[in-house]
């Protein structure tokens, strides 16, 4: 079931060491992985960056769902591989498929182990975003809230998507039947209800927020405060070093694909 791929982006409410990392440090780690993977197509590097995350996934106890999401992404990876195979050399196709899997893993890792609430708190701490939000929307935390809501809706929509798929399959819809064109068309009965649910939900959300006094005043307090621990500083340092190193190498050397 290809929509199981969304399972890999759902937050799993566990309390492992990976879950407890500061979301800011974790996000920088994500950037630290994404930057080199977008700058280079070296197969060893990409494979390395993928393997580096396996222990993190293990500590976070989300490996099973990660594998599930990879299995769901097989169709898209195959598509990427085939398209690139016909337009370029084989190594390139392998590298780009690997890059896709790597990006998917990285985001999946981040979203599976970071609670949306923590993420919101983290964004709210960033001075630039508060300033931008005040200039733009009139309130310092409106922008961070918008982002949190968007992220928060990913798992909710994943649940909805599963229900919609179940409902339509119960009506005899067979998603993986027919040729490519038919398969794409098969998704219309899934996408339309999903879209409408999303729109309806956002309207309801807006009303609910207003009813609860959103956006409130400047200097709103929060129940939980984020604090950097030594391990967060370490991760921050490694990620920053990785990013700087990646750019430095990128501008000074030409890294081959293999």
């Amino acid at each position: 079931m290809s929509l199981r791929v969304l399972n890999g982006f759902k937050f799993s409410s566990l309390k492992t060491r990976v879950h407890r990392l500061d979301p800011r440090a974790k996000f920088l780690l994500v950037i630290g992985i994404i930057v080199p993977s977008l700058l280079f197509t070296n197969i060893y590097l990409l494979a390395g960056l993928l393997l580096v995350q396996v222990p993190l996934l293990l500590i976070g106890r989300v490996t099973r769902r990660w594998v599930q999401s990879l299995r769901g992404g097989v169709f898209l990876s195959a598509l990427i591989f085939v398209v690139n195979f016909f337009t370029g050399p084989l190594v390139n196709a392998v590298a780009l498929t690997l890059r896709f899997l790597l990006l998917m893993t990285t985001f999946s890792f981040f979203f599976m182990t970071t609670s949306p609430d923590d993420l919101g708190l983290a964004i709210d701490k960033v001075g630039f975003i508060r300033w931008l939000s005040r200039r733009w929307l009139g309130y310092p935390n409106a922008l961070s809230f918008t982002f949190t809501t968007a992220v928060r809706l990913v798992p909710t929509m994943a649940v909805d998507a599963q229900t919609v798929v179940d409902a339509q399959r119960s009506r005899g819809l067979e998603l993986d039947k027919g040729n490519i064109l038919k398969r794409v068309r098969n998704y219309i009965p899934i996408l339309i209800p999903l879209l409408l649910i999303a729109i309806r939900r956002s309207l309801e959300l807006a009303e609910a927020l207003e009813a609860r006094g959103f956006p409130g005043k400047e200097g709103r307090t929060s129940l939980f405060e984020l604090r950097f621990k030594p391990v967060d500083y370490a991760m921050l340092a490694i990620s920053l070093a990785g990013i700087v190193l990646s750019f430095w190498v990128f501008f000074h050397y030409k890294v081959p694909t293999i």
């Binding site: 179940d166 409902a167 009506r171 209800p193 409408l196 309806r200």
Partner: peptide
């Protein structure tokens, strides 16, 4: 035949 709880999940 299963009729799901929320009609919004199937009407399109």
């Amino acid at each position: 035949g299963i009729v799901f709880q929320n009609p919004d999940h199937l009407l399109f």
